[in-house]
Design a protein around this nucleic acid. Sequence first.
DNA 1: GATATACTGAACCATCTGGTTCAGTATTTA
DNA 2: TAAATACTGAACCAGATGGTTCAGTATATC
Lengths: 116, 116
Amino acid sequence: MVQYITTRLDASFAALSDATRRGVLEQLGRSDASITELADRFHMTLTGMKKHVGVLEHAGFVTTQKVGRVRTCTLGLRRLEDEAAWIESYRQLWAARFDALDRVVEDLKRREKIDD
Amino acid sequence: MVQYITTRLDASFAALSDATRRGVLEQLGRSDASITELADRFHMTLTGMKKHVGVLEHAGFVTTQKVGRVRTCTLGLRRLEDEAAWIESYRQLWAARFDALDRVVEDLKRREKIDD
DNA sequence: GATATACTGAACCATCTGGTTCAGTATTTA
DNA sequence: TAAATACTGAACCAGATGGTTCAGTATATC
């Protein structure tokens, strides 16, 4: 696996591993919000929320733009494709393993019948 | 969102945020392995790998069983359904927002034509 | 121009994380 | 029974994380 992809997945999953940050993503899914609005909503200092937004921005999930003194946060351009793809590949691995197990069981059943 | 689900997602995404652990899952997708085998493969001490396996086990991705002196690790029963579901809901939020944006643009275009 | 608002950055803090070493215990194997 | 193997647990370490406060700067508003 290429290092580039690896570290991006690292950043993505790490960003998603915090409930507050997942909440922020959900909130931004409904409407854009300023740092202050997000900080209020999640009962946190402005500085604390700014850090969370920074993490989400670094992971590519959020983009921000400052107009006047207000910085507005928007759901970013990345759409979790890589993360969904990784999870899907894992699911396929899993499926393959247990399909194989199914075949073994199937096989045993067939033999049982033949042996009868 | 219920706390139970929240903390499980925390554990899941945190478990997936490390390249070594994702590697271990891929490896276990191919075949079961002992802690020693995994430690060798990922150039790490036995103790270090045991911690990683512990994290994966706690997140429900891996189960282990000790027979004699060997602990064998197996891909666990959970299949990332919750994680996939969360990501999917986020993708839908995203889609909804940008569909709305599309409609606005569409609308503007229509008006332009009428105004001609 | 003075005051309030919105953010920014540095510094601090406790706790978690990813790794190690070292000193066990339990189980094979010779 | 002695030696090797496989794991376990405690203790340690450096660095990241999730939060805070405090002291700014820049912008809006009265």
